[in-house]
Computed example of a mutant assay.
Amino acid sequence: MAEDIGASIRRRVDYTPIHKRAPLKLPGEARVAVWTIVNVENWSPNGPMPRAVLPPPMGQPLLPDVPNWAWHEYGMRVGFWRFLETLSSRGLRASFAVNGTACEVYREACEAARDAGWDFMGHGFIQRPMHRVEDQKAAIADTVAAIRECTGRPPRGWESPGLTETDETLDLLAEAGIEYVADWVLDDQPVPLQTRAGEIVSVPYTVEINDVVISAVQQQPSDEILRRGRDQFDRLYLEGAKTPRVMAISIHPYLTGVPHRIKYLEQLYDYILGHEGVVMWTGAEILDWYRSQVPAKG
């Protein structure tokens, strides 16, 4: 069974080395398209936390988990608004990966993201791996409906909680009208993925310039997002002289939105914006650019 699933996953995407593809062109001969993903999730204090900053006393999980829930909740009460100011003051818009239930729980934040012109992406209905969702089709539909109710339009993109997918997830997303996904962290350019409902595009996402990995998993110093992000950009900018690259910056309000990290995100943006030949886009804008150059088959 494992081999069959692996073969099914590989059949969705052709193996084409980046140096053997037809050349792409960014506007104005730009080298790099940079997109920011702000992740907003609904954590329940009555269940195990997706992430924890404090281990449970004596190693025994205790519910409700008030300290770890509150750690996350700080991000929505304070950290998110730092993100909004950081991006808006620089004329930048984010892609907004949001749980469907968060559209109601954090209504004011979602409306602020909408009013700022951010690109809403589905991020599951609740913060739970897709493998543990009993009815993925219904959860996807509920997420799309919640975003449409908040913004007036359905999301075009999707990022699964924890980047998790089952063998059927991609098909269900395409059938629900989703046009691009961020789960397949396998390239520096968009690539088409095959589904039973036609192609869906993988827009390059990141597990490296991602504050869950940097701050929560690896527990790196507060300035790591700046140092790693600057190095990532420098290399993509160099390579982008031959063929354009896409850089993602993935952030969460409870991690990079805290006082001792936010200035390093601001410095990263200022560093990138100090270069010519860069476009600061949303996931939907990257999708539209790619489709203008590589039309869908069929």
Rank of each mutant, 00 (worst) to 15 (best):
V133C: 09
E134A: 14
E134I: 10
D135I: 00
K137Y: 01
K137M: 03
A138R: 13
A138C: 01
A138W: 03
A138Q: 10
A139Y: 09
D142E: 15
D142H: 14
D142V: 05
T143I: 03
V144C: 06
A145P: 08
A146M: 09
A146Y: 11
A146F: 12
I147C: 09
I147W: 10
I147A: 08
I147F: 11
E149N: 14
E149M: 09
T151F: 08
G152F: 13
R153A: 15
R153F: 11
P154A: 10
P155G: 10
P155S: 12
P155Q: 11
P155W: 10
P155E: 09
R156Y: 10
R156N: 06
R156V: 09
R156S: 12
G157C: 10
E159P: 00
E159V: 12
P161V: 10
G162N: 07
G162H: 06
G162C: 04
T164K: 08
T164H: 14
D167W: 13
D167G: 10
T169G: 04
L170G: 01
L170S: 01
L170R: 10
D171L: 05
L173D: 01
L173M: 05
A174D: 00
E175T: 01
E175C: 03
A176V: 03
A176D: 00
G177D: 02
G177N: 03
E179Y: 03
E179Q: 15
Y180V: 01
V181Y: 00
V181W: 00
A182Q: 12
W184F: 12
L186T: 08
D187E: 03
D187Y: 03
D188E: 07
